[in-house]
């Protein structure tokens, strides 16, 4: 079957999709976006996390046909050109990336968290990221990265002009 959807703002079409395929497979193997990772394909690791109509979901558990006419956002869409999103930059800076296989999913999930909660507590961060397994870091540097990203985003908000010049 054919599936037409939007990825990172771009209209996209995938042809010859087998009906049992996942969104993850379509992204990785058919539309050239292998950034979302395939660590388990059973919803347990979060490495495949993408936005689906604005909500982070495991793309391995979304049937390809279910994204027809919908909007998908992947890790590849987080940066603005060469400018990394603050979440991406914080993961690099804090040493939260080792093998990096968990990273794309964690970035999307953290991005969503910090959109919803500007100053999350440690417990909130842990609850929000509890569906993203990382086998390398022991999560300490990931916690650092999320706190760093939250602080930098707060600084950026403070620095942003609040007048009418908009």
């Amino acid at each position: 079957m054919k599936v037409t959807f939007t990825v990172n703002g771009r209209p996209t079409e995938a042809d010859d999709v087998w009906e049992g395929e996942s969104l993850l497979y379509v992204l990785r193997e058919r539309v050239g976006l292998p950034g979302s990772k395939n660590a388990c394909e059973q919803g347990e690791c979060g490495s495949c996390t993408v936005y689906l109509d604005g909500d982070p979901v495991c793309s391995c558990l979304v049937a390809a046909g279910q994204v027809q006419d919908r909007e998908v956002g992947t890790v590849e869409g987080l940066a603005q050109g060469d400018t990394l999103d603050p979440v991406q930059q914080a993961f690099v800076d804090a040493g939260a990336v080792q093998c990096g296989f968990c990273t794309p999913g964690l970035l999307v999930q953290t991005h969503d968290l910090l959109n919803r909660a500007h100053h999350p507590s440690d417990a909130e961060i842990r609850e929000a990221l509890s569906g993203n397994l990382c086998r390398c870091t022991g999560y300490e540097k990931i916690m650092d990265a999320v706190r760093l990203a939250a602080a930098r985003k707060a600084d950026a908000r403070d620095a942003a002009p609040t007048g009418l010049e908009g």
């Binding site: 890790v75 993961f91 990336v97 990096g100 990273t103």
Partner: peptide, 21 residues
């Protein structure tokens, strides 16, 4: 210093063995 592969990894551009085509 930061990892030389860090930027690629956070952009989703780092080619893992399962990403090859």
């Amino acid at each position: 210093p930061l990892r030389p592969d860090g930027i690629l990894k956070v952009k989703g551009d780092f080619a893992y063995s399962s990403d090859l085509w």
